[in-house]
Design a protein around this nucleic acid. Structure first.
Lengths: 143, 143
DNA sequence: TGGCTATCGTTAGCCTGCAAACAATCGGCT
DNA sequence: AGCCGATTGTTTGCAGGCTAACGATAGCCA
């Protein structure tokens, strides 16, 4: 006679589970719309950040994206391998690695941003415009 | 003269980014409250599901948790290593691997569920009760 | 019976994420 | 000059997550 399962703890009702599921669906939409040749979700986030802010140190880039150093390193390495980013030591401060977009990435970014708008729209599609705005506000307060 | 960055595409406003950040914060709270000796987020989800539903095949367990087969395999392997779960071939259907809780896990589960309630509360703490309910409803519609 | 198809699980390979320990560099302060 | 603390990046090791390709079993149906 083990303890009986807590009858009022429903996994499917927990915020954590709901957040994971919603993010999971978003990532699937991202990959589907961006396609094989496009960047992954985090790769795109890094590229857009570099586009808007110009070359950044690995560390600063990571901070803007809420990624810890080992993760940034991996993402940047894959961006380099794909030819979308270069990495050089900062001459003024030898600790920094300046990450910069390549021309290829700059050329592709406008198209990717358009797709990204579609991805956001698809993620929010089940909600009306008013609820889409609401969920944005609420999630921002939960960060 | 590269194309100028899309001025109205703000990464921080995209649902995907907000979902990731909120989930990230939730996981940090989970780990902090559950502690070193407790299960991880997904390990706990698996254990609770087995508690409520009884022994399940690996596949069914994964379906209940929205995990694909390779991921389930890893989670179950770690649960076995921690002594919280056993795994046996189903005598009636040789394809199935029946996963079942150990007495150790059953004994610990009530305490873990209590902590899990605290984790949900902590995740939703920035919101009032009304907004907490709202975000649940909205996320469920986005799944 | 024999074969077809569906289901279940595994492997390999890739990507994201975290903590902890470590090396290198910089800046300031003595 | 010399030291110390802060910052930056790396490595290692672990956990989760996906696709694609593959073997084994079960169930059905000709």
């Amino acid at each position: 006679m083990g303890t009986s399962p807590a009858p009022d703890y429903q996994l499917e009702d927990q915020v954590g589970h709901l957040l994971r599921r919603a993010y999971q669906r978003h990532l699937a939409l991202f990959q589907g719309i961006m396609g094989e040749d496009g960047p992954t979700s985090m790769q795109f986030a890094a590229l857009v950040t570099l586009w808007r802010q110009g070359p950044l140190s690995q560390n600063l880039l990571g901070r803007g994206l809420a990624m810890d150093p080992p993760t940034v390193k991996g993402v940047v390495a894959r961006l380099m391998a794909r030819g979308w980013v270069t990495r050089h030591r900062d001459p003024a401060d030898a600790r920094l690695l300046r990450v910069a977009l390549t021309p290829a990435a700059e050329a592709a970014l406008p198209g990717w941003v358009e797709k990204a708008r579609g991805i956001t729209a698809a993620t929010l599609a089940p909600l009306g415009p008013a609820d889409a705005a609401r969920v944005g506000t609420l999630l921002r307060r939960m960060e």
